[in-house]
Simulated scan of single mutants.
Amino acid sequence: MTSPADRLQAVRDRIAAAARAAGRDPAEVRLLAVSKTWPADAVRELAALGQADFGENRAQELTGKAAELADLPLRWHFIGQLQRNKAAAVARLGAVVHSVDRLSLARALARVGVETGRPVEVFLQVDLGGPEGELAARGGADPAEVPALADAVAAEEGLALRGLMAVAPRGAAPGPAFGRLAALAQRVRADHPEALDLSAGMSADLEEAVAAGSTLLRVGTALFGTRPLASGQDESHQSHGSQQPG
């Protein structure tokens, strides 16, 4: 079995090679280690190797792990489907929320941002659909609704719009889907120049995501190994029947 250091270096090498192949500076692409279901000790191992950004998809697991690892200067990201009644706990941790797909959730997060005086950084999750182009119903806003949602989020005092996030459709080549996401991101940036980031790409498709302009890759399996997931779940997400990043 390879060591955490070997796995981390292998992923970094893949990212650098993908960036160079796309004519991009590898420094433009950051790595988010998806640590969901893995113990805090696994996070601590990667943190000791210089990895600072970690993603979780359940609020309870995120808050528990953050408390256990409070001695480390980590940057937490929430990548799961977030219920409004859990939004405050996630926001108070200072976590970046990747899965805002509706205004009601955005406003719940914004209230905490106003109360704490620290705007909550958010990504808008986009539903890229399935192989026939239908909406996938795994979380994410309809692409046609994203520009209006971006306008509403950008207007909230307690939020900071970072950009868009999406998961490639199951059963289809990821490249075209990431291309559509990149075009939508460009449209959103035209009105909101601060929305510079694009959260896309996982262990299996990070090269295609980098080629499409991703700035933040959500990688789990390639860093930690295969997770013992229940039937029907993928490597990255498991709540509300949605495919989510990892």
Rank of each mutant, 00 (worst) to 15 (best):
Q51D: 09
Q51V: 12
Q51M: 04
A52G: 00
A52D: 08
D53P: 00
F54R: 11
E56S: 01
N57S: 04
A59W: 11
Q60R: 07
Q60Y: 05
E61R: 06
T63G: 00
T63Y: 03
G64H: 06
A66L: 11
A66H: 07
A67R: 14
A67T: 10
E68H: 04
E68C: 01
E68N: 00
E68F: 03
L69A: 08
A70W: 11
D71V: 01
R75V: 04
R75Q: 06
W76I: 01
W76L: 02
W76F: 09
W76Y: 10
W76C: 02
W76M: 06
H77G: 00
H77V: 01
H77N: 02
F78K: 05
F78N: 02
I79L: 09
G80W: 02
G80D: 03
G80A: 02
Q81S: 06
Q81H: 12
L82R: 10
L82S: 12
L82M: 13
L82C: 09
Q83K: 15
R84E: 04
R84N: 06
R84G: 00
N85T: 07
K86N: 14
K86G: 12
A87M: 06
A87Y: 11
A87R: 12
A87G: 05
A89Q: 15
A89M: 13
A89T: 14
V90F: 06
V90D: 08
A91E: 14
A91P: 09
R92H: 12
R92D: 11
L93Y: 07
G94C: 13
G94M: 06
A95V: 03
A95L: 05
A95T: 10
V96Q: 12
H98M: 02
S99C: 15
D101V: 09
L103H: 01
S104C: 00
A106K: 04
A106D: 07
R107Y: 09
A108W: 04
A108L: 03
A108R: 00
L109N: 06
L109I: 02
A110Y: 12
A110N: 09
G113C: 07
G113T: 08
E115Q: 05
G117A: 10
G117S: 05
G117R: 08
R118F: 02
P119T: 09
V120N: 13
V120D: 07
E121D: 15
V122K: 11
V122A: 13
L124A: 07
Q125M: 05
V126K: 11
L128E: 08
G129W: 11
G129F: 13
G129Q: 09
G129I: 03
G129V: 06
G130E: 15
G130W: 07
P131H: 09
E132A: 15
E132L: 05
G133W: 13
E134I: 01
E134R: 12
E134H: 15
E134W: 06
L135F: 11
L135K: 05
L135H: 04
A136I: 07
A137D: 12
R138F: 08
R138T: 10
R138N: 10
G140W: 10
A141K: 10
A141N: 10
A141T: 10
D142W: 07
